[in-house]
């Protein structure tokens, strides 16, 4: 990342909310496209060393994105993002959630609401994502799930990268 691109990760424990803000050196339309088109999402969404594989994408209100984040060993972690409101190219709101390969959401696990906003700043675009859980209990379930499943251990390597990236 270019050193002068803003990145904020803000945790609001009192409101069960995480806010992620990131600047990109590109025009808003292009950043929007990268968030809303399957062929582009497949090229960036999963954190390294995982890759993204879209099984279904219908970017409209009431539609959903069903995708897997795949480890180098071939293990898939399935997720589903259900689009609630879409306001091109200003933002969208969606429900995130764990699911299986068939796209069936596990009702035991909490779903977080994502509010994603795209704002232009000169030649740059600021993307603000608010991840909102409906209760402290839901956050705790997400934590338990996140720490239990294999994705966590895959990502542990990322934690090692953090100090150098933050510098």
């Amino acid at each position: 990342m270019k050193p002068d691109l803003q990145f904020d990760f803000l945790v609001d424990k009192a409101r069960n909310r995480i806010t992620v803000k990131r600047e990109f050196a590109a025009k808003r339309q292009l950043v929007w496209d990268c968030h809303t088109k399957r062929e582009l999402l497949d090229r960036w969404f999963a954190p390294k060393p995982l890759t993204t594989r879209t099984k279904h994408m219908e970017f409209r209100e009431g539609g959903y994105w069903h995708y897997a984040m795949v480890t180098p060993e071939g293990q898939s972690f399935w997720n589903r993002l259900d689009y609630q409101t879409i306001d091109p190219i200003d933002g969208y709101a969606a429900l995130d959630g764990f699911c299986d390969e068939a796209g069936v959401v596990n009702p035991e696990l909490p779903r977080a609401r994502w509010d994603v906003a795209f704002t232009a700043a000169q030649e740059r675009t600021l993307v603000t994502t608010v991840v909102l859980y409906s209760s402290p209990q839901d956050v705790q379930k997400a934590i338990d799930m996140g720490l239990k499943d294999g994705l966590a251990s895959t990502l542990d390597r990322l934690d090692e990268l953090l100090p150098s990236l933050q510098a």
Partner: peptide, 27 residues
Amino acid sequence: AVELWLGQQRAIWQSRYENLDGLLARL
């Protein structure tokens, strides 16, 4: 446990956005 999870969430977003930097530069 909480801090570890938050650290992981932060790392996920940071990594995916670095991928996006690369993609945007190519596009």
